[in-house]
């Protein structure tokens, strides 16, 4: 079963996204900020294949985590989809430049999330 990580400081958002991912067949783990997420990813090593990543979070924000992960060769194939309230063109461009595979602006629907995950080409 493929494994996904949901990173968002809102418990409610994490629950909604985790439910959708489980319906798609993912095993799901959660983190409330970038630092927690990094710990999970490093502990799980190569087993996490997909990360749904919020931008604005305490301790370590999503963009900083994204940049950190993309600097590490062992996480080069990790599929990262930003899911955030940041909805300006410059933010989307910045995230893509930093290595995000896809970008979802909040608010989202289940269809939007599923469609964006499909666009990344990840097998599930």
């Amino acid at each position: 079963m493929p494994k996904a990580l949901v990173v968002d400081d809102s418990k409610a958002i994490r629950t909604i996204l985790a439910k959708t991912l489980k319906e798609l067949g993912f095993e799901v783990c959660e983190a409330a900020n970038g630092r927690e997420a990094l710990e999970v990813i490093e502990a799980e090593k190569a087993t996490v294949q997909l990360v749904l990543l919020d931008w604005n979070m305490p301790e370590m924000n999503g963009l900083d985590l994204l940049k950190k992960l993309r600097q590490a060769p062992e996480f080069a194939s990790l599929v990262i989809v930003m899911v955030t309230t940041e909805a300006e063109l410059k933010h989307i461009a910045e995230a893509l430049d930093a290595g995000a595979n896809e970008y979802v602006m909040k608010p989202f629907t289940k269809d939007i999330i599923v469609g964006k995950i499909q666009l990344t080409g990840i097998q599930f």
Binding site: I92, L96, M105, I112
Partner: peptide, 17 residues
Amino acid sequence: QIEVNRGLPAALLVKYF
């Protein structure tokens, strides 16, 4: 926003909008 959020690859959003 809801329309460009759905189905459109983010790279094409940045490039053509």
